[in-house]
Amino acid sequence: MSDLIVLLGWLGIYAPVALGALGSAIGVAIAGQAAIGAMLETDGGYGRFVGAAAIPSSNVIYGIVVMFALQQPVTVQNGGALFSIGGLLGIALFYTGVWQGRALASAIAASKSKTEIFGLALAPAAIVEGFAVFAFVFALVLAGGIA
C-alpha cells in the first residue's frame, strides 16, 4: 500500500507538466488550424492569428512551475497530497488548454472578416485563462503547506 502511495505521489508531481503539455498542445493545434484557415481568407494580419493561437502554451508553463513547487522526497505521508494537488491541477490545465483552443479558434474564425472584433473575441479565451491561473495559484498555495 505504501508503495502505491509513493507511486501516486510521483504521478502527482509530474501530472501538471504532462497534462498541461497535452492541453497546451491540443489547444494550440486547434487554434493554429483555425489561424491557418483564416489566413486563406485574409490578405494581412497573419501575425495576430498566430499569436492568438499560441495563447494555450501558458498551461504547460504553469504545470512546470507547480512541478517544481511539488518536487520533494515522496513519502507515505505526503504522497496523497502530492497526487491530489498535482493530479487535479493537471486535469484542470488539460481541459482549460483544450477549451481555450476552441474559444480561440472561434475568435479567429469570427474576426477574419470583421477585424474590429478581434480584441473582444479574445475575451472568452482570456476568461478561460483566468480559470487556469486560479487553479495554478491555489495549487502553489497548497503545495507550500505540504509537510
Binding site: 493545434a29 483555425a34 484557415g37 486563406l40 481568407e41 483544450v98 474564425a109 477574419k112 472578416s113
Partner: peptide, 18 residues
C-alpha cells in the same frame, strides 16, 4: 470531441461568414 474533428477547424475558419 474537438481533437478528432480537427480537419474541419481549418476549413471552417477559411470560410467567410454569409
Amino acid at each position: 470531441m474537438i481533437w478528432v474533428d480537427q480537419p474541419y477547424v481549418t476549413l471552417m475558419a477559411s470560410l467567410p461568414a454569409i
